Computed example of a mutant assay.
Amino acid sequence: MRLSRILARKIKTSGYMPDLIVAIGRGGYVPGRLVSDFLLFNDLTSMKIEHYSRAADMQEEARIKFPIPVDITGKKILIIDDVTDTGETLHLAVDYLLNLKPESVRTAVLQHKICSNFTPDFYAQKVLKWRWIIYPWARYEDLAGFAEKIIQNRTLDISQIIVEFKQRYELDLKETELLKILDDLTERGELESTKQDKRKLWSLKQ
């Protein structure tokens, strides 16, 4: 919320008032909604670009899955996403939207990693050292991906998984939160659980 408010203030101070805000899905959905709210701006739409799957697993290249659903000819566009990581998502979004003949395109993110190959027009915070940032609206999915990475080809109990979350990702998880994630992954068929000496163990489903 705080970063969205800061970002909105910077956009407003710049004097750039868009005709349309385009949120990049899925990471930009929440920031796009919040920034548009702080700008008292109603015209918000979205497009979905896929680059990362769960927990920092990068796909081969960014691709547009769901293009923008409206005509933007002659309009001033503001693209909003959560973060610049490699920068490929915003490069693709800008190139795609410019081909639709808008008057102008500007970009805004909550957090800009200086290692990115794309520098947005507006950002609320600069990140000096690369790290994977877990946002509240993506926490469950990210933790699920990290859990699968931790387990890999092993069979672990919940205390072992919690320890590795701390060691690898500096995350202190409560057992109740992690249990829900492991149970959901098991229900989805991605993990399987067994019992050994009264301990519940998880492994990747073969």
Rank of each mutant, 00 (worst) to 15 (best):
L7R: 06
R106E: 14
Y16M: 04
D95N: 15
I64Y: 11
R168F: 03
H112W: 14
T186W: 00
W130N: 07
T89A: 06
K75F: 07
L92A: 07
T176R: 13
A62D: 05
E187A: 09
A56R: 15
Y123N: 11
F66D: 14
I151P: 01
I181P: 00
A55K: 10
L201K: 10
R2P: 04
P67N: 06
G32Q: 09
R2H: 11
I133F: 04
F165S: 00
G32E: 09
Q59W: 07
S46E: 14
Y169Q: 01
E61F: 14
L110Q: 10
Q125E: 15
Y96S: 14
K198I: 03
Q125D: 13
V30I: 15
I133D: 06
I80A: 08
T119N: 13
E50M: 04
I64K: 08
D95T: 12
S203F: 03
L40I: 08
E175A: 08
I49R: 08
R199N: 13
R63V: 11
W137C: 06
K200Y: 04
P18H: 06
E50L: 11
L40M: 12
F41S: 00
T186Y: 00
Q206H: 11
L178Y: 00
R106G: 05
T84Y: 02
L185T: 01
T155E: 15
T107I: 11
K10F: 03
L179I: 06
T89H: 05
T73G: 12
V22L: 01
T86P: 00
D197F: 12
V94D: 07
N153D: 15
G145Q: 02
R26F: 07
I68H: 04
G25F: 08
K10R: 14
L143W: 09
L98Y: 11
P102E: 08
T155Q: 14
R2V: 09
R106Y: 15
R199Q: 14
E164P: 04
R106W: 11
L92E: 06
S104I: 09
L143A: 02
K76Q: 12
Y29H: 10
I21D: 04
L179W: 07
E187R: 10
A108C: 12
K75M: 12
K198F: 10
H91F: 14
I77Y: 04
V109R: 07
L178A: 00
Y29F: 15
L78C: 04
I77T: 05
I64N: 10
Q59A: 06
N42Y: 12
D85L: 08
L98R: 12
I21P: 03
A147N: 04
R131A: 11
Y123G: 08
L143F: 11
V127D: 11
D81P: 02
L78S: 03
L39D: 04
E170M: 05
K10A: 01
T176W: 05
I79D: 03
K180E: 13
K48R: 13
R154W: 03
S159F: 10
D57R: 14
L7W: 09
A147V: 05
T107D: 10
E187S: 08
Q111L: 14
E175N: 06
A8E: 01
D43T: 12
Q59E: 13
L179Q: 13
S159A: 08
A8S: 13
W137R: 02
D184G: 02
G189D: 11
G27A: 05
E177I: 04
G15C: 03
I161K: 10
I150E: 01
S193G: 00
K174I: 01
